[in-house]
Amino acid sequence: MLAFIIRRVGQSILVLLVVGVVAFSMFNFVGDPIDNMLGQERTAEDIARLREQLGLDRNFFVQYFRFLQEAIQGNFGVSYRQGRPVTQILLERAPATLELAAVSSILAIVFGIALGVFTAIRRDGVLAHVIMSASLIGVSLPTFLIGILLIYVFSVELGWLPSFGRGDVVDLGGWKTGFLTASGLKALILPSITLGLYQMTLIMRLVRSEMLEVLRQDYIRFARARGLKDRTVNFHHALKNTMVPVITVIGLQLGAIIAFAIITETVFQWPGVGLLFINAIQFVDIPVMAAYLMLISVMFVGINLLVDILYFFIDPRLRADRTGGH
């Protein structure tokens, strides 16, 4: 068991290193940050000097090695654009993304499961058909289009909700939260719907099909035959047994929500790490790009590692394999 975990951790570290190599080799294609850092009256001398100072004259393996050296000590360098430590910037921006991701996930899970159960139980009802058709929108429309549509309806036409930003925030010892002000909560509504819509429809469709599958099972029929209430059968027996795959998917999608908040954050000018990353690409802010990509890959690798380890405990076959047996 310990050997299994060590092996998995080792593999994860290898994956991270490879991600880093790919990321750093890509930075060469994003362009040259020098022109963004110097004004139009710069001389060839200025360009050469700055390039040397930033270490851009070295090849990317050297740059990558230097990045790793510093990163291991928790130092991700200084942002080219802002001239401030990247760690500090990421910590400032993370609460916005995490709060948005949390609200989106909760919306997606609550509404996804509720609508999934509803459309499964009333599979032939008119409303269920309407919901199923509408869910196609969530799956097929690109996020930025949904975002813009919501802004035009609820901000421009109706004037109910803010068109961009996070509203007023309250500083709780470095964590700036939008949960404690009216404008902060209002500002959360449109972006969280935009970000959560895809996940919601995904969960809803998954719950529905799992539910339909389970409802056909013998033990459900027996439960009905025993004269149990519909409610008890549907929620106690059926829903409970659909949740295993649903929880797996929700877990994996949680990472996706954080990683893919980029588009939603750009449309709503939501001041999170995704928007920071987009800005960094536009400016060729290599330290910020590198730190963000590492952060996201650590997150994904971490989730996968956890899932692997959980499987080890849940699935006896895996255990039997690894411990050798007879």
Partner: peptide, 12 residues
């Protein structure tokens, strides 16, 4: 950054 968002912000 997003021009459409900026226009919406002005209109609203």
């Amino acid at each position: 950054q997003n021009p459409a968002t900026a226009v919406a912000a002005l209109l609203s």
